[in-house]
Nucleic acid binder design. Structure first.
Lengths: 250, 250
DNA sequence: CGACCTTTTGAACGTATTCAACCGATGTGG
DNA sequence: CCACATCGGTTGAATACGTTCAAAAGGTCG
C-alpha cells in the first residue's frame, strides 16, 4: 500500500509533506545539519522523490549513470564492489541520515552498488540541484563539503582497521562503531540487531565468515557480549574498547 | 637560495608569476582542470602562497587547525596516521597535481600528517576562498566536488586491496598504480625511482617490510621487474596486471 | 515436511609475521 | 684515514594467525 504513493504520484501528498526535511527526525544528522529553518525549506524543495527500497532490492547498480545522491531516511543498506568475485566487496553499511552515492560524483557513474538489508527509504537529490542551491546557501555548500570530507575520514578509519588490526580488533572496532551510530540515532548503544550476515561482516572487515563466527563465540565466552543469532548485547564495552585500541602493547 | 624567495617576500615576484596556475604544467591534473583561461586566472588569485617543504619536513601535523588544502606542485609526499604506533599508518603517497588535506575539511583539524619524501613545493588555498570562488564559478565548484569524490574512489580501491588481496597482488597493484601516475605526468611508466622505503610501502599495503623485500626479490627472479635499491624497472607489466587482477582464479 | 541458507565448530593447512643474522652504503669522530 | 655506528635492505627459520575444507546443527520458507 505504501508503494502506491511513491511509484505513481508525483504531486505533493500529505504523505510527502509528512516526511519533509523540516520535520524529519534526522535533520541533525543529514544534509540539513546546521541550516536555518528557512534554508531547510529550500533543501526540501530539491529533494526529488522519496523512494522505497525493499529488503534485498538494489537502489543502484554499478555502472548506472549517477546524477543523484541518496540520503537514507529509514532502513539499512550496504554498498558493495560488484566486480571482485572474492571477498571484501562490502564498502560500508549505511544507516538513517547517511548519504550514499558520493563516489559517483567524479565520473557520473556509480562505482559500487547499494542494496537494502531491510525495507528502507531514501531521499534523492541531484548533484546539479545541490550545486545550484549550494551557490545560494553557503551553509549548505559547507555542509556538503563536510559530508564528503567526513566520508574520507571514515575510509581512512577502515584502512587503518584493514591494514593493521588483528581479526579480534577488527570485530571489536566494528561492534563499537555500530554501537555509536545506533546511540547517536537514539537507540540503545548496548543492545541491537545485526542487519547483516556473518559473511557480510567478514566481507567488510576482510575476514572469512568462519573467523567472524568464531570471534563471536570467543567474545561470548569471555563475557564481552551476548549474542543470539543476530541479536547482540554488548555487556562489556570498556573491554571491547581496550581490545579495539590496543595497538600492539599487551 | 631558492628559500629566500618564498620565505620572505609576500609580494608578487617574477618567480611567483612563473608558477601561476595559468602557466603550470599541472593544470590538466590539478584544481584548474576543465576551467577556462579566465577562470584559471581567478583560481590563481586565491592561491595564498607557494610553500617549500624540504625532504623529511612536515607540511602539517595532525591536530593542527586546518583551513587550507594543498596542491602538490613539485615533489612527493606521504600522509600518515600519527596515533597508531603499529604499522599501516600510511594513507597515501602524493605526487604533483594531487591535493592534500581533504580529510580536514569536516572538523577543521588535520587528522593525519603530511611529510615530504623529497624536496617539494605545494600551493595553498583556503577552503573559505575556494568555497567563495566556487559560488561564482560553477565549473570550479564541480571540479572540487570531483576531486573529493575521486579521493573516495581511491580509498575504496585501497580498501579492496587491503581487504582481499594477497601480499603478492598488493605489491603488483601498488607498482602499477605508481606506474600509471608517473605516466600521466609525462614520465616513463616502466622505469622510475621509488621515493619511499620498503617499510613505508609495507605500511601502506598492510605488510611487513620483510614481506615487501621478499616480494621484490621474488618478482625479480620471475623476470617481472628489475630492482636496484630504489630504482625500479617494470619489465613485464602485463604479467603484473595479471597478478594484480587475478581475484582467486588460477 | 523437506530444501535451503546461515551459523557453528573442528582439523589441517598456508601465508605472512616474527625474530634474527647479515650485508652494503652512508656518515661520524678519534 | 679507518674504526665504528647507523640505516635500509635482504634472507633464513620458526611461529602464529587466519583460511580452507568439512561436517553438522539450527532457522526459515516454500
Amino acid at each position: 500500500m505504501a508503494t502506491r504513493i511513491d511509484s505513481a504520484n508525483p504531486v505533493f501528498s500529505l504523505e510527502t509533506l509528512k516526511v519533509a526535511c523540516s520535520t524529519c527526525g534526522l535533520r541533525e544528522l543529514c544534509l540539513p545539519l546546521g541550516l536555518s529553518a528557512a534554508e531547510i525549506k529550500r533543501v526540501d524543495a530539491i529533494v526529488r522523490r522519496r523512494r522505497k527500497v525493499r529488503k534485498t532490492e538494489t537502489l543502484y547498480h554499478a555502472g548506472m549513470t549517477c546524477r543523484s545522491l541518496y540520503a537514507v531516511r529509514v532502513g539499512f543498506l550496504k554498498t558493495r564492489d560488484p566486480e571482485s568475485s572474492g571477498s571484501c566487496r562490502i564498502f560500508g553499511f549505511h544507516m538513517a541520515g547517511e548519504l550514499l552515492g558520493l563516489d559517483g560524483i567524479a565520473g557520473g557513474v556509480h562505482t559500487c552498488e547499494a542494496i537494502a538489508l531491510e525495507d528502507s527509504e531514501v531521499c534523492e537529490v541531484t548533484f546539479e540541484d545541490l550545486e545550484v542551491l549550494g551557490r545560494e546557501l553557503p551553509a549548505l555548500q559547507k555542509r556538503f563539503h563536510q559530508i564528503l570530507s567526513r566520508e574520507i575520514q571514515r575510509d581512512h578509519q577502515i584502512m587503518r582497521v584493514l591494514g593493521c588490526k588483528t581479526a579480534e580488533q577488527r570485530l571489536a572496532v566494528f561492534l563499537l562503531d555500530l554501537s555509536e551510530r545506533y546511540e547517536s540515532r537514539g537507540y540503545s548503544p548496548a543492545s541491537f540487531h545485526l542487519r547483516m550476515s556473518r559473511e557480510e561482516i567478514g566481507s567488510y572487515l576482510g575476514l572469512q565468515l568462519e573467523t567472524v563466527s568464531r570471534l563471536f563465540s570467543n567474545f561470548r565466552k569471555r563475557g564481552l557480549i551476548e549474542v543470539e543469532r543476530r541479536h547482540l548485547i554488548l555487556t562489556d564495552r570498556p573491554a571491547l574498547q581496550r581490545i579495539a585500541n590496543d595497538s600492539d602493547l599487551e
